[in-house]
Write a protein that binds this DNA or RNA. Structure first.
Lengths: 175, 175
DNA sequence: TTCAGTATTTTGTAATGCAAAGCAATCTAT
DNA sequence: ATAGATTGCTTTGCATTACAAAATACTGAA
């Protein structure tokens, strides 16, 4: 009958699955979730200033500073001052840090991609279309998101328009 | 071309949107995210023992105890010892607690349901089918999920089978 | 009664998370 | 040039999470 209930339950299942996978990864790597999120964000985006990192992760700068302190102590991240603007500090993942992520158990998106690509072309299209629909309904199509499921937050708003509880500023990318 | 990348980006957008909405709700209600999650869990499930609550939220019992301490101090939750088994303590949302949730801004699922029900029947079916597919791929179809998006975690594993990083015990429901 | 098991709280420690204050570098307008 | 505003990060102080291990309280069975 009520397809909207069905859809909501399925969405919750999906979100929950990624959440549980995150916690699993966290245990495997010995990092806390915020630390893991930080590493993943750096892996995807490359070196970032602390401010950009904080914006990406939707956290206060002070919070990111203390997370980086611990990651640096573990030699997973290195801080490097920008040459062009010495106020800025770049957080760079170390080789050891990247290695840790690589050695982590098969990521959820690996599983997803493998099974997704086994599907018929029309099935793939149907799923993408449906997800687009849902994303639009939730006002999520504005959000800049990396193609990875593992950890639960990249940030950034683009356009105007839809739900207003996302009002971060535009970002200028230049270190 | 690469539809799997598209699908992953869309999924991340969706997950991210619910996360941002959670943080928004958190600010509006003046509760932290774990506190909000606790209240929502109680709203959905009704009074629960501390142990059940912890299992639902995928947290340690000790953690839930301290969260409840603060919610109780705010008069949003009341503790009540079970009569039949005096070891057990039931966490009951107070009227004030339920009121707080009700006065919260329009929930994400309200938006979702409203727009979803405006769609054609075949579109609804397509979306549900696609979500089922995705849920299955992620091994999420086992997860017991309430039909609500607002806050990011209800727990519980059912069957055997798929991804093994969800190994909570079976739950016996009787206070 | 005694004892193993169950349910919760207490204790102790580490990590988040943030606002506000502090500092250093840069920019802007004089 | 240079005072004042701004930007970018860290420090400080505080409240909250989060969890393991120990302590407490109750139950049910031998």
């Amino acid at each position: 009958m009520d397809k909207s209930q069905d859809a909501l339950v399925l969405l919750r299942q999906i979100i929950r699955a990624t959440d549980l996978h995150d916690k699993h990864l966290s245990r495997m790597t010995g990092l806390t979730m915020p630390q893991l999120l930080t590493m993943q964000t750096l892996r995807i985006n490359g070196p970032l200033t602390i401010g950009m990192l904080a914006k990406e992760m939707n956290l206060a700068q002070a919070t990111v500073t203390s997370i980086l302190d611990r990651l640096e102590r573990k030699n997973l991240v290195r801080r490097e001052r920008s040459h062009t603007d010495k106020r800025k500090v770049l957080a760079c993942p170390t080789d050891e840090g990247l290695e840790l992520l690589k050695s982590a158990p098969a990521t959820l998106q690996d599983t997803f991609i493998r099974q997704f690509e086994d599907m018929h072309d029309w099935e793939q299209s149907m799923i993408v279309a449906a997800l687009e629909h849902v994303s639009h309904i939730l006002g999520a199509h504005h959000l800049d998101a990396a193609p990875m499921l593992d950890i639960g937050a990249l940030d950034r708003t683009n356009e105007s328009g839809i739900p207003d509880y996302l009002k971060s500023e535009q970002n200028s990318l230049k270190n």
